[in-house]
C-alpha cells in the first residue's frame, strides 16, 4: 500500500466513524437514551432480578443461561464441523488450522499431565471443555447478541459465567471433579482429602463470577454513557474481555488440575511409631520396604 492509498484509507474510515458518531448523537435522547438508571443496570448485572428471559415459555431465566445455551450450541456446531470436515483430513505435517486445534488440545492435555501425575486422562478432557467454555463464553459478550426480556425491552446477552448460577455450577462441578479424582486415587481417604479444602467450591465459583462480572460491569458502565462509547470500548470492551477470558480460563483449569493432582496422588503409608513405656527409645514397626 502506497502512502497516498494509506492516507485515503485513513480519511475514509475517519469519515465513516464520524458519520456513525453523528448518527448516534442525533438518534439519542436527552442523557444517554437508556430506559434504566446506571444503578439499576449495574445492580441487575449482578443480581439478575429485573431483566429475565423466557425459556420457551416454561420459566423466566437469567440472560446468562440463554447465553450459555447459545455458546454451547455454537461450540458443538464448531466441533461437529471440525469432526466432519477437518479432522479426517489431518496430516502428519499439520496445516495452520490443524496446528491450532492440536495446540489447544495439547495445552490442556499437557496441563493435566503436568499437574496431575495420576488419572489425568479424564482431567485433560474436563479442563479442555471448561477452559474452552469459559473462553468462548467470555468472548461471546463481545458479539452483543440482543434478546428481548420479559419486560419487553432488548438487552445484550452477557457471558454465561457472569451469571452467578453459571459460576456456581462451574465452581461446584470442578470441586466434584476434584473429589472424583480423590476417590479414584485414594478411595474414601480421597473424600477426606478433598473435604479439607471445603472452601474450594466457594472460591472457585466466586472468583470466576467476580472476575467476569467486574468485566461486565466496567463494560456496562462504559457503554452506558454516550461520551465514553467512542474509542474507549476498543480497549475496555475488546482487549479487557480478551484478557480476562484467557486469564479466567487459565486460572480455573490450572487450579482444578492442581487440586485434582494433589488429591488423586496416592498416599504412602507412614510407618507406625510405637513408644515404649519408661524408655525414651522409639521403635519403628511395619516399615514399608518400598518407602
Amino acid at each position: 500500500m502506497t502512502k497516498q492509498e494509506r492516507k485515503k484509507a485513513i480519511i475514509f474510515f475517519s469519515a465513516v466513524a464520524l458519520v456513525f458518531m453523528i448518527g448516534a448523537i442525533l438518534t439519542g435522547g436527552s442523557g444517554g437514551g437508556e430506559e434504566e438508571s446506571v444503578q439499576v443496570v449495574m445492580r441487575d448485572a449482578v443480581m439478575h432480578d429485573v431483566n429475565k428471559i423466557s425459556l420457551f415459555g416454561l420459566k423466566d431465566v437469567n440472560p446468562g443461561l440463554i447465553a450459555g445455551f447459545i455458546v454451547s450450541g455454537i461450540m458443538i456446531l464448531f466441533a461437529l464441523i471440525c469432526r466432519i470436515f477437518v479432522i479426517p483430513r489431518f496430516k502428519l505435517v499439520p496445516g495452520k488450522f490443524q496446528m491450532i486445534l492440536e495446540m489447544v488440545v495439547g495445552i490442556f492435555d499437557g496441563m493435566a499431565k503436568t499437574n496431575s501425575k495420576h488419572l489425568n486422562g479424564f482431567m485433560g478432557a474436563y479442563i479442555f471443555a471448561a477452559g474452552s467454555y469459559i473462553f468462548t463464553g467470555t468472548m461471546f459478550e463481545l458479539l452483543g447478541v440482543q434478546v428481548m426480556t420479559t419486560a419487553g425491552h432488548p438487552i445484550t446477552l452477557p457471558a454465561p459465567l457472569a451469571d452467578i448460577n453459571g459460576a456456581i455450577m462451574m465452581g461446584c462441578l470442578s470441586y466434584l471433579v476434584i473429589m472424583s479424582g480423590g476417590i479414584a486415587g485414594n478411595g474414601i481417604k480421597g473424600i477426606g482429602k478433598t473435604l479439607k479444602d471445603f472452601s474450594l467450591p466457594l472460591s472457585l465459583s466466586f472468583r470466576l463470577f467476580g472476575a467476569l462480572i467486574s468485566g461486565a460491569l466496567v463494560t456496562e458502565l462504559v457503554y452506558y454513557y454516550k461520551a465514553m462509547s467512542f474509542v474507549v470500548p476498543v480497549i475496555v470492551g475488546v482487549l479487557f474481555t480478551l484478557l480476562h477470558a484467557l486469564i479466567q480460563a487459565y486460572v480455573l483449569t490450572m487450579l482444578t488440575s492442581l487440586f485434582y493432582g494433589e488429591v488423586s496422588e496416592k498416599t504412602e503409608k507412614k510407618p507406625k511409631v510405637k513408644k515404649q513405656r519408661g524408655k525414651k527409645r522409639v521403635t519403628v514397626v511395619n516399615q514399608d520396604p518400598a518407602a
Partner: peptide, 25 residues
C-alpha cells in the same frame, strides 16, 4: 438454573470430548 447450567455444560463436555478432544488426541 444451576442445574440447567449443569445440564448445558454436561452436554457440551460430552460433545466436545467425542467430537473434538478425543479424535484430535
Amino acid at each position: 438454573q444451576i442445574l440447567l447450567h449443569l445440564f448445558n455444560f454436561t452436554i457440551l463436555f460430552g460433545a466436545l470430548y467425542i467430537l473434538l478432544y478425543k479424535p484430535v488426541k
